[in-house]
Simulated assay, not measured.
Amino acid sequence: MAEIKSNAASVEFRNVTKVYGKSKVPAVNDISLFIEAGNLVTLLGPSGCGKTTTLRMIAGLELATSGQILIGGADVTRLPATDRDVSMVFQSYALFPHMTVRENVEYGLKFSGFSKKDTADKAKAGLELVGLGGFGDRLPSQLSGGQQQRVAVARALVLEPQVLLFDEPLSNLDAKLRRHVREEIREIQQNLGLTVVYVTHDQEEALAVSDRIIVMNNAVIAQDGTPRDLYDAPSSAFVADFIGEANIFDCRITDVAKDVATVELGPLSLKLPARDQRPGPARLAVRPGRIELGSAGAPRTLPGTLHKVTYVGSHLEFVVDTEFGAVFAISTTVDAQFEAGQKVGVGFCEHGPVLLTG
């Protein structure tokens, strides 16, 4: 029985720019990145930020205007898609409706020099890998959306590419199915040690599947780091608000000593990692789940008035009016006794506030 092997390779961009036609506005502007072999890295950002163009340049479906693209250390900048050892899973699945599931998975293998037996064995192994071993004789129309997506993954995996690319793979699935399929994709990637580049605009999806996340905005890289790095220590208000939600406060740094900043926020004085910031006006971000509501006038809190209290099942959501504007907070203590109009104190968890650097 044939097995699916990993030929995982690194991906590198060196000062890559992409400009379409006569446009003077780059779709991707002078970006450099390195993706280690065997990692799943997500390109995350709003529509038009350049993430899909970046993915298509890895695939060879778009050629860079300038700069270098390397796969496994080899320069592929000018190579067409047919000469790059990559496979892509599209948002639309792109299955042939008149072919069976098995024939869809075998399709690429037939043009890759494999014997008829090897083609059949690899297709069988690919379908078993994605949990569809008994579905080979069905047509795509006889499968659910999640099953069709898994067929598309199997078709890409059997080619044993150096890099596997996903373009918004879960956007056509409902929320519960998205969670299930993303877990399957992550498990397969880890078990086989694949290099995967994954494009999405869904922040939760990116946090759940990634070794690293590259956040893009306006054709450049806004921040690159692990999911925890980006969630706990965003570099800018854009990253803070795009990955999850964040309250942004204007504050003032009064002193910096040994990489610790003394920060004034209304009546509060906070000691925070300085992150190379100097004394003067600054901004800090606080996640809604790292805000604690207490009694009005409690020490180390900002005074506020509850504007709205919303019960959403698993948690309570609060909007608090303060001198710094509306503050959004979340509490998993769903039986907390708070009511709209109530005076409260807005406090921060020990590792809640973080200074923004950009």
Rank of each mutant, 00 (worst) to 15 (best):
E3I: 12
E3A: 15
N15F: 04
V16M: 05
V28Y: 00
N29C: 08
I31H: 06
L33R: 04
I35W: 08
I35C: 06
V41G: 06
L43P: 03
G45K: 10
P46I: 02
K51H: 13
T53Y: 06
M57P: 04
M57K: 10
I58T: 05
S66D: 15
G67H: 02
I69M: 02
I69F: 06
G72E: 01
G73S: 04
L79T: 00
P80C: 10
A81N: 06
S87I: 05
F90Q: 06
Y93Q: 11
H98V: 13
M99T: 08
V101C: 07
R102T: 10
R102C: 00
G108Q: 00
K110E: 12
K110P: 11
S115E: 06
K116H: 12
K117V: 12
T119P: 06
K122S: 08
G126E: 07
L127W: 07
L127N: 01
L132M: 07
L132R: 11
S144A: 14
G145F: 14
Q147N: 10
Q149T: 01
V153F: 05
R155K: 04
A156S: 12
Q162V: 09
D167P: 08
D167G: 08
D167M: 07
D167W: 12
L170M: 13
D174C: 01
A175F: 07
R179D: 13
R182P: 15
E183R: 15
E183G: 15
E184Q: 15
I185V: 14
R186L: 08
I188T: 10
G193E: 06
G193N: 14
T195S: 14
Y198T: 03
D202R: 11
E204D: 14
L207F: 09
S210Q: 02
I214N: 02
M216E: 00
N217Q: 13
N218T: 11
V220P: 11
I221D: 05
T226A: 05
T226H: 07
R228F: 14
R228C: 10
A233E: 03
S235Q: 01
S236F: 02
S236R: 07
A237Y: 05
F242S: 10
F242G: 04
G244D: 05
F249M: 03
I253K: 00
I253C: 01
V256M: 03
A257V: 10
K258S: 15
D259F: 14
D259A: 15
V260Y: 05
E264H: 14
L265C: 08
P267M: 02
L268Y: 00
R275T: 04
Q277K: 15
R278D: 12
R278F: 10
P281S: 15
V286C: 03
V286E: 05
P288H: 01
R290W: 13
G294I: 11
G297T: 01
L302Q: 11
L302S: 08
V309S: 02
T310D: 09
Y311F: 15
V312D: 01
V312H: 10
H315T: 05
E317Y: 07
F318G: 11
D321Y: 12
D321F: 08
E323V: 14
V327H: 04
F328Y: 12
I330D: 10
I330E: 14
S331T: 02
S331L: 02
T333G: 09
T333S: 13
E339K: 13
Q342M: 12
G345E: 09
H351D: 15
G352C: 05
G352M: 02
L355P: 12
